[in-house]
Design a protein around this nucleic acid. Structure first.
Lengths: 224, 224
DNA sequence: CCGCGGACTATACATGCGAGTAGTCTGCTG
DNA sequence: CAGCAGACTACTCGCATGTATAGTCCGCGG
């Protein structure tokens, strides 16, 4: 939905063109390229936004807003699958890639996106744990953050590996990713990877020894 | 080891300075900054390497070589822990961050690094599966690739989230990451996330239905 | 002592960028 | 019709970067 029309005001056209350019080619894309894509001149950016930075800020805000809308939509309509509802459509794909680029870029906006997702994931998992659907963790917040970092990160790496993301196939790219990531994800998440608990128990013992140093042992003097 | 000395030939000094600059600030770092860090002038880059591209190619090759050395070292000496041997030292940290930046950058070198790690991971896991240490997968290659993408990716996201990586604390950054990622990693890998097999079995059924279309069902016409 | 060659510097391009300025076109309002 | 305001364009400026050129310094073999 939203913006298939071409009869938008110049400001909105410029913003949407910038979102697609940023998603497709990264935030290094020049104002001239963005303006060309929007069918206007480069100087107009300044007229409407003042600077490239402000343009991007508006793009960030718009993407976050639309992401939230898509999120609640996908939460309401089909509660079938756990992941992958987001990038189903083309619009969702653009949003997802834009978010990935923000994270890749290391910008504050990227942090905002990630923090948002972590909060959502934490709420989701704590609820799912309470309902017995998900195994509890010794540190729910750390697990939620880690899993979000893994999810975003694996998509990011996958995206970065492709020689060039065609401007149009955002949805296609995400679909391909899902096709090759879904099976391993589900395997690891339901069956685990290690056949026994040795590594985990050893690490837990290590942690316990570090926080509760047993009397009679010296030498652990990593000051921090 | 390797390069704490300052009495290296100009070419090597320049290369090592470039590796550190690229790792610390990304590949956009200017030749002048690199030259300044190496204590020489910018024109010398051209004299020794011809272009920035060739400088970077040499950095890529050097990093890959040193990474392999560190890898086999850590494989031989302490077979205690499974992960995290790599970025123990400062040198390892620089290498790791350089590799992360290469992946982030989307360069062919990044692909090389990842493919390398995937091959290593695949060899490792198949062996571990044979020895009963790791749960088998329905597609070992896909799982290995996915797990590498997740590992690299989560580090990448974590790195990108930090406001600025100090030039010196490469090892510190990696240590911090390990401290916060180790517990969730081990939990997920040994205990899984989902409490039951529903999602996995549903997806497997979906896959089976897609590859072996049961007669008498139409409507699945997603051509690709 | 000569002088030759390579490491190295200083400086000058050429390019692409964001930012800034001035001016044109268009539509609405009185 | 007058004229004003805002959307929009064409052009210029300053800056940073990679690249290229000319020249300097120094050690080593004759």
């Amino acid at each position: 939905m939203s913006t298939t029309h071409e009869d938008l005001t110049g400001r909105a056209r410029l913003r949407d063109a910038a979102i697609e350019c940023f998603a497709a080619r990264g935030f290094g894309e020049s104002l001239r390229a963005i303006a060309t894509r929007a069918g206007v001149s480069a100087g107009l950016v300044r007229h409407h936004f003042g600077s490239k930075e402000e343009l991007r800020a508006e793009c960030d805000a718009t993407v976050l807003k639309r992401y939230r809308v898509l999120k609640v939509d996908s939460m309401n309509t089909p509660p079938t699958r756990l992941f992958a509802q987001l990038p189903a459509s083309r619009d969702g794909g653009v949003l997802m890639v834009y978010i990935l680029r923000s994270v890749q870029d290391g910008s504050p906006a990227g942090r905002t996106f990630v923090d948002n997702m972590v909060a959502e994931a934490l709420a989701f998992t704590t609820d799912a744990v309470a309902r017995g659907l998900v195994v509890p963790s010794r540190n729910e917040e750390a697990r939620a953050r880690f899993m979000v970092q893994q999810s975003i990160g694996s998509m990011l790496v996958n995206l970065a590996m492709r020689p060039e993301v065609r401007l149009d196939d955002f949805a296609n790219v995400m679909d391909q990713y899902m096709a090759q990531a879904m099976l391993p994800t589900l395997e690891v998440y339901t069956e685990g990877v290690f056949a026994d608990r040795t590594y985990l128990d050893e690490y837990l013992a290590y942690l316990a020894a570090k926080t509760n140093p047993p009397a009679g042992l010296a030498g652990e003097a990593a000051m921090s």
